[in-house]
Simulated assay, not measured.
Amino acid sequence: MPEPLDAYELRILAILQVDSSRSNADIAREIGLSEAPCWRRIQRLKRDGFIRAQVSLLDRKMVGLNAQVFALVKLNQVGRSNLSEFSETIRQFPEVMDCHVLMGSVDFMLRIVAKDIEAYERFFFEKLSQLPGIQDINSMVALSEIKSTTELPLVP
């Protein structure tokens, strides 16, 4: 179990999740630490898994992925007994950005991106609906995006 986060570490995480390209010196100056202790804290946060990766967030529409679809997937009894098989297969589809196991009337919620609705239709008929154990898929097309963030609400 990792050590609990202190106020400095929470501030470091808050800064890095907004802009992970900031230098150690810049972060140290902002939070009021010298560079060496700041660097050690960042290394600990990486080592302990608080920081999973440092990536560039792309604008999906700028790269031609104009359709965003949420699919609610319900498995039949046989499918539920093979949740790990379904999960492993879903991980292989690059169109699936997020996959969550749900409690309630459906088993999974997927967020899928595609070039357009026709591309999603091909994905749906050629890949998603072909998976064994699926009872029902309810697809909902997102018309617009009101809020999308990767920033967790950290409170120091």
Rank of each mutant, 00 (worst) to 15 (best):
I137Q: 02
A36T: 10
M103G: 08
A7Y: 15
F108C: 04
R111W: 15
A142C: 08
E30R: 15
L57I: 05
K74R: 07
S56N: 09
D48E: 15
L65R: 06
S21N: 15
M62N: 10
L72N: 01
S81N: 13
A7V: 15
Q130Y: 14
I42Q: 15
L102M: 06
A14D: 14
I90S: 05
E121W: 00
E88H: 13
V113A: 12
L83S: 07
E121F: 02
F93L: 01
E88T: 10
R111D: 07
R11Q: 14
F93D: 00
Y8T: 08
A142V: 12
G64V: 05
D6A: 04
L5C: 06
V18Y: 15
P94T: 02
S21E: 06
L131V: 06
E121Q: 06
G133A: 05
P153N: 03
A28P: 01
M109K: 11
A14W: 06
S105Y: 14
V63A: 02
A7R: 14
Q92W: 04
S21C: 10
L57C: 06
P4L: 07
A71W: 04
W39D: 06
L143V: 13
N24D: 04
L128I: 13
I15E: 02
S148M: 11
N66T: 07
R41M: 14
E35Y: 10
